[in-house]
Design a protein around this nucleic acid. Structure first.
Length: 562
RNA sequence: UGGGGGCUCGUCCAACGGCAGGACAGCAGACUCUGGAUCUGUUGAUAGGGGUUCGAAUCCUCUGCCCCCAGCCA
């Protein structure tokens, strides 16, 4: 077994290493246990990375196991989606795809075994009564009047539960532990409940009793020979129970280790709230690019590599924390910077006419596809007398430190010529600049000044006659506050929804090479940001999602001047 | 007021009795045919008290603050 765990360390890797050294285990096997009741999000990505990478660090493997013990909440619909997302993230569980429901028969046998040991009993208390008998955080509970039924009686009753002789809620199977325990999970927890209504997505109507999480998870881990069961801090209180079942059953002693879940600023990661956003139409669906779901992020243009990098930057600990979403954004920029081909796209176009350039003439200028990656090669971009440039790249009265185009000023057109603004036309109706007139210096083809003159600004452009129309979906944070999870009195997370989280910008002009792009392709629109072609793209209209903007130093300067 | 966890730069993570370090964010500068990238510099933290020790973020102790647990959810 190769131990590659030294490179990066965290408390889980330390613990696993100790277990190997002490001989507690002689191999490493983890599992990722999603419940098929929703789509995976960035929080799950952390768990997936930790599960798979911890095993990989020691040459071990990871099982995928669907935790499908509650047919009222679960659905096949999610199974395929979850698998797709894990694969996309870059992890492979080989043929080790399991379901808790695979073990229903075995789990039933385990329950019988505990009944025979006098460690489990059928309880006919109603749900309300069970709650009353459980006591409170500070007062001990009381023992159920059914607690001392004989083994024979319990065996018979449990079998009748399985046979469907009782209605839902009539009775449950409980572990007989300690009603006075300070740990409420140990106050005779429910092991099995009766569920008649919906057929299970895999076992159909075969079962009408289903094991609770506590009676399923640890035993499934054990059956699969999982050495390290890595989970959320929320299960810390359950660990004594996890160990109690394994000990009483005398089965393989998997070890549960808990770590803190991921939280992100300006983001909500609760499955319930995410569902609400979708169902109430605040977003367009589970794959809306503003959603923190893996599908949403994929559509937005995030790469699996960037997400994995982000997760590793976040680290692993037991401290509940809220990670700055800027860290995620930094990870995507870093990744996309190296691989996204550059392209010129004008988001808010204004016409620019080069008055001394021959009408009808078209030149093919050579542009570098990615200065970070010479192997990305070059492409030709058409240049002509009429261009579009970004409205924001021209000012009638340039502020200090602004070094783009303005009357009388010179600027370089990327990969093109150096031009000088001679004049501009303003639309009297709306008071907006409608046309900018420039002259070009024919000696500066390609953007080089043979006389060595310095030109501070370089702006992007497209040839008006050759440009393609595009729609850009410009995204901003979904929430206006860093922690929408903690609303003020009388408010909910919905009160912090950012009304400007999506701006649909039509009439954008992009360079013609983009005609070859396919949905999912990622680009850097020079000086703007990274964009990903959306599946909504049609033959007549290209649609792009903003993944993340470039760092914008000018915006900062401008902000400070206000 | 029971039980279980957690407190290190603004944020996240390291340091495992021996110079508190990195990343992101911030600030300043260099460079630049992307105000991108890159490079350089820089601000900035051990929750508080007591103790052990030559030496404490680390060990002990007391205090404070934060989170989780009373589903027939997971």
């Amino acid at each position: 077994m190769t131990d590659q765990s030294q490179e990066s360390s965290n408390f889980i890797l330390d613990a696993v290493r100790e277990d190997l050294e002490s001989g507690r285990f002689n191999y490493v096997r983890t599992r990722f246990p999603p419940e098929p009741n929703g789509y995976l999000h960035i929080g799950h990505a952390k768990a997936i990375c930790i599960d798979f990478e911890t095993a990989q660090a020691f040459g071990g493997t990871t099982n995928l196991r669907f935790d499908d013990t509650n047919p009222v909440k679960e659905d096949v619909e999610y199974v395929e989606a979850i698998k797709e997302d894990i694969r996309w993230l870059g992890f492979d569980w080989g043929d080790r795809e399991f379901y808790a429901s695979d073990y229903f028969e075995q789990l039933y046998e385990f329950a019988v075994q505990l009944i025979k040991k006098g460690k489990a009993y059928v309880c006919h208390l109603s749900p309300e009564e069970i709650r009353e008998y459980r006591g409170t955080l500070t007062e001990p509970g009381r023992e159920s009047p059914y607690r001392n039924r004989t083994v024979e009686e319990n065996l018979e009753l449990f079998e009748r539960m399985r046979n469907g002789e009782f209605s839902e809620g009539a009775c449950v199977l409980r572990a007989k532990i300690d009603m006075a325990s300070g740990n409420i999970n140990l106050r005779d927890p429910v092991m099995y409940r009766i569920i008649h209504t919906p057929p299970h997505h895999r076992t159909g109507n075969k079962w009408c009793i289903y094991p609770m999480y506590d009676f399923a998870h640890g035993q499934c881990d054990s059956i699969e020979g999982i050495t390290h069961s890595l989970c959320d801090l929320a299960y810390e209180d359950h660990r004594p129970l996890y160990e109690w079942f394994i000990r009483e059953l005398g089965i393989f002693p998997s070890r549960q280790i808990e770590f803190a879940r991921l939280n992100l600023t300006y983001t909500i990661l609760s499955k319930r709230f995410l569902k609400q956003l979708v169902e109430e139409g605040h977003v367009r669906g589970w794959d809306d690019p503003r959603m923190p779901t893996l599908r949403g992020m994929r559509r937005r243009g995030y790469t699996p590599e960037a997400i994995r990098k982000f997760i590793s930057m976040v680290g692993v600990s037991k401290k509940e924390s809220v990670v700055d979403v800027a860290l995620l954004e930094s990870a995507v920029r870093d990744d996309l910077n190296l691989r996204a081909p550059r392209v010129m796209a004008v988001i808010d176009p204004v016409k620019l006419i080069i008055t001394n350039y021959p009408e009808g003439q078209v030149e093919e200028l050579e542009a570098i596809n990615n200065p970070e990656d010479p192997s990305a090669g070059t492409r030709k971009v058409p240049f002509s007398r009429e261009l579009y440039i970004e409205r924001d790249d021209f000012r009638e009265e340039p502020p200090p430190k602004y070094y783009r185009l303005a009357p009388g000023r010179e600027v370089r057109l990327r990969w093109g010529y150096i031009i000088k603004c001679t004049d501009y036309v303003k639309d009297p109706q709306i008071g907006q600049v409608s046309e900018i007139h420039c002259t070009y210096d024919p000696e500066t083809r390609g953007g080089y000044a043979p006389d060595g003159r310095k030109v501070q600004g370089t702006i992007h452009w497209v040839s008006a006659a050759h440009a393609l129309d595009a729609e850009v979906r410009w995204y901003d944070r979904l929430f206006t506050v860093p922690n929408p999870n903690q609303p003020e009195e009388g408010k909910t997370f919905l009160d912090y929804l950012n009304p400007d989280s999506l701006k649909i910008i039509r009439g954008c002009k992009v360079e013609k090479s983009l005609a070859q792009a396919k949905p999912g392709d990622r680009f850097q629109f020079e000086r703007k940001g990274f964009f990903c072609m959306d599946p909504d793209t049609t033959d007549s209209l290209l649609v792009f999602n903003l993944t993340v903007t470039l760092r914008d130093t000018w915006a900062k300067i401008e902000q400070k001047m206000k």
